[in-house]
Simulated scan of single mutants.
Amino acid sequence: MRERWRAIGVLAGALFAVNVAARLVIEFGFDGDDTAADRVSLVMFLAIGVILAVVAFRWGRGRPLGRLAADMGAAVAVALLLTVFVAPLLVGNNPFAGGAGLFFAQIWLYLAATAAGVLVGYLILTALGLDHRSQQLKRYAQLKAAKPRRVVRR
C-alpha cells in the first residue's frame, strides 16, 4: 500500500513541477508577452498529457482498469489542487487574480489535458493487447488450451 501512495505522490509532484516550471518561464522569461505565455502554456499542457500517457501505458500493464483509474485520478486531483491554489503563490500571484472565468478555465483545461493523456496512453496499451485484462484473457486461453479434453463415456 505504501508503494502505491508513493507512486501517486511522485506522479502528482511531477505534474505540479511541470506547471511550476511553466509559470516560472512565463514570469521571468516572457513577462507581458501574452502570445509567448500562451505558447508556454500549450507546451506545458502537452508535456502533462505526454507524461500521463506514458504513465497510463506503464501502469496499465500490471493494474486492473479500476485501480488504474483510481490511482491516476488521485494523482491528477492532487496535482490540480496544487496547480490551482499553490503554484500561483510561488510566482507571486493570487490564485483568483484573473477572476472566476480564468480560474475555472484553468481547471477545465487542466482536466482536458490530463484526460486526453490518460486516454491516449490507455488506448495505445489496449490496442497493442498489453493491458491487464487482455493479458488475463491470454493466460486463460493458454491454460484452457493446455489441458487435455476429458472424455465422457456413456
Rank of each mutant, 00 (worst) to 15 (best):
R63F: 08
A74F: 10
G92D: 08
T83K: 04
G66E: 13
G92W: 04
P88I: 02
R67C: 00
D71Y: 01
F96T: 10
L81P: 02
R63D: 13
G60A: 00
F85P: 07
L82T: 05
R63A: 12
G92T: 06
D71A: 09
R63I: 00
L65K: 00
A74Y: 09
A97E: 14
F96Q: 08
A79L: 08
L65E: 11
L80S: 11
R67W: 06
A79T: 12
V91Y: 03
L82K: 00
L65R: 10
G92M: 11
G92P: 10
V86W: 08
G66Y: 11
G73M: 04
V76I: 15
V86G: 01
T83F: 13
G98Y: 05
G73N: 05
L80F: 06
A100T: 14
A97I: 06
G98M: 08
R58C: 09
A69T: 13
M72V: 11
N93D: 15
V84P: 00
G73L: 11
A97K: 09
G101S: 11
G66T: 12
G98E: 12
A70M: 14
L68A: 01
L81M: 15
A87R: 04
A70F: 14
A56H: 01
R61H: 02
L68P: 04
G73V: 08
A70Y: 10
R61F: 02
F85Q: 12
A69V: 15
F96P: 07
F85C: 03
A69L: 15
F85I: 06
L90P: 02
V76A: 14
L90N: 05
A74W: 10
L80C: 12
F85R: 03
L65G: 00
A70L: 15
L82N: 08
L81Y: 09
L68Q: 07
V84T: 12
N93F: 11
A75V: 06
L68K: 03
L90S: 07
F96N: 03
L82G: 15
G62K: 01
A75N: 08
R61N: 05
A100V: 12
L65W: 14
V91L: 03
G101I: 10
L82M: 11
G98D: 07
L89V: 04
G99E: 12
A77D: 07
F96K: 03
R58N: 01
V91I: 13
A74V: 13
A77G: 08
G101T: 13
W59S: 07
A97W: 04
L81T: 12
A87M: 11
R58E: 13
